[in-house]
Write a protein that binds this DNA or RNA. Structure first.
Length: 524
DNA sequence: CCCCCCCC
């Protein structure tokens, strides 16, 4: 049984080709009937064209919960689970869990518009609905995110085996993961080149639970643009999301999640576990940066300490896939005037040097660790040093890092020795001041603020330490299990609807203007 | 009637 080093997830394991499933772990959102747990057959594409002929059957309900009080006979309504391939007459009631953007396609046989949705019924079973030209014209503006509809008599098709899963055998070992937590960081969306020459949007976010365990989550494709932008636009709020049908992989010792083409993101949905997290989140006085820092400090607590001298002299004193930290004094910031841009992916890094005789260690800080050191985002830093570095408080802070002691968190997989053996490069995952409050100071006002922050932090750390691993309470399972009669209540998400509406008005450029070349910074 | 599961 595979386990994940995290908190709130559901883990399904398909036992055999018939698709029976077992579920372990997790104490939050349970989608017992998620079709992905039952093999590929239920990954049906539901064609809706024929629904046009019986539009009177399509009643638009204002929200999911009203399904229960529907006055019309519900006898003919069947669950998505019981839909048969090629079934001619049927009605389902389903909620729009995800709306794609309307796309055009063009191939040898055909061309036109296509619009996809992911629907779920009150058992939690999901199905993909596909609409084409005429259907899009009729239904555009009718289907709305998180609203429920009666849908009838479209074409029910078996999914194309070719597309359902490229490696069917992998389905036996690759479980899908559902996760919920709050979003602690949101990266930029950018275009990456695939090995086959194609392009793909990618956006990395970080999700955390209330024990401040963090997990990187990669949003792919359309989701990186749409839902990702939605998250970014609301990044000032403490956002809680449920993300379903994720792939889990381990990259360089770090467990990470990626969306699949079956993934959905629900924003602040109404379910008991989310409400609990929300309550906790809003009662904690942390801001985004403090949360990041606390998460790092928690990891450092658990990591093994290692002497940097040992790392330099012995090429392999460390174990694979293990978190370590070392304590050291920064000798120099190699690129303090202009943090370096990494050409392959659009991010900046800071190189710190530690010199020990002839030996040199270089620690590279990307993203959050870098932000944590200088107290602002890398882009803000660059803008501030570009103007006048000597008046920049961030620059002064950077310079004052020198001769300070820090703890650096790193994964053993991110350490490389140079050919001569005298230089060591470490990509750090986190940074913490070695003792007390010796993060570089800017001025008195900040000292005062830091003191206040430190008090708050102490309070939070105590609260985190006091948290017991939450057992699965029967009560919780019943309340959140879609198998029970109670439907999942989803908050009517006006924001997201407005967002989708806006999306339609924005004409997308085919090739978004993303920086692909190395950025040249003016010398300051 | 589309789409080919990804990148460091």
């Amino acid at each position: 049984m595979q386990t994940f080093p995290v908190m709130e997830y559901n883990h399904s394991e398909v036992n055999n080709n018939e698709g029976s499933a077992s579920i372990t772990g997790g104490y939050f959102y349970r989608s017992m009937t998620d079709p992905c747990m039952y093999g590929r057959y239920l990954y049906g594409d539901l064609y809706l064209q024929k629904t046009l002929k019986s539009q009177t059957r399509n009643r638009i309900l204002s929200n999911w919960t009203q399904i229960q009080s529907l006055t019309m006979s519900t006898e003919s309504i069947i669950s998505i689970n019981s839909l048969q391939s090629n079934q001619k007459i049927w009605t389902i009631e389903a909620m729009v869990l995800r709306q794609g953007i309307i796309k055009t396609f063009n191939n040898v046989q055909n061309n036109g518009k296509i619009w996809k949705m992911i629907l779920a019924d009150n058992m939690g079973t999901k199905i993909q609905a596909v609409m084409f030209n005429e259907a899009i014209r009729k239904f555009e503006g009718i289907f709305q995110h998180t609203k429920a509809y009666l849908i009838s008599n479209g074409t029910v098709k078996k999914p194309n085996e070719k597309f359902a899963n490229v490696h069917p055998s992998l389905e036996l070992i690759n479980p899908y993961v559902h996760i919920f937590g709050f979003v602690s960081s949101i990266g930029q969306s950018y275009v990456i080149k695939k090995k086959n020459g194609g392009e793909m949007h990618k956006r990395e976010i970080t999700i955390m639970n209330k024990e401040l365990d963090s997990l990187p989550l990669t949003l792919w494709g359309e989701m990186a643009l749409n839902e990702g932008q939605m998250l970014q636009e609301n990044s000032d709020k403490k956002q809680i999301i449920i993300v379903s049908s994720l792939n889990g992989t381990t990259y360089q010792g770090q467990f990470q999640l990626s969306t699949t083409n079956m993934s959905t993101i629900q924003f602040d949905p109404h379910c008991i576990q989310v409400q609990k997290l929300k309550k906790w989140l809003h009662s904690s006085p942390t801001n985004e940066m403090d949360v990041q820092q606390l998460a790092v400090e928690k990891k450092i607590k658990k990591a093994k300490e290692i002497n940097i001298r040992d790392l330099l002299t012995n090429p392999s004193p460390i174990m694979e896939n293990t978190l370590y930290y070392f304590q050291a004094t920064i000798d120099d910031v190699e690129n303090k005037d202009q943090p370096w841009y990494d050409g392959s992916i659009p991010r900046y890094h800071i190189r710190l040097e530690f010199v020990d005789g002839n030996d040199k260690a270089i620690v590279i800080l990307f993203d959050e660790p870098a932000t944590s050191l200088i107290g602002c985002t890398i882009l803000d830093y660059i803008n501030s040093v570009r103007k006048d570095k000597f008046t920049s408080c961030f620059y002064r802070k950077m310079v004052s890092c020198k001769s300070m002691q820090y703890k650096f968190l790193f994964n053993s997989n991110r350490v490389t020795h140079s050919a001569t053996g005298q230089t060591l490069t470490i990509i750090a995952q986190g940074i913490e001041v070695a003792q007390g409050d010796n993060f570089a100071k800017i001025n008195e006002a900040e000292t005062h603020e830091t003191k206040k922050k430190r008090q708050l932090k102490k309070k939070i750390v105590e609260a985190i330490d006091a948290v017991e691993p939450t057992p699965i309470e029967d009560e919780d399972i019943n309340k959140s299990n879609p198998n029970e009669n109670e439907p999942i209540e989803i908050e009517d998400d006006e924001n997201l609807n407005a967002f989708y509406k806006r999306q339609k008005q924005i004409l997308r450029k085919k090739n978004p203007t993303i920086l692909k070349k190395k950025i040249k910074l003016e010398n300051v």
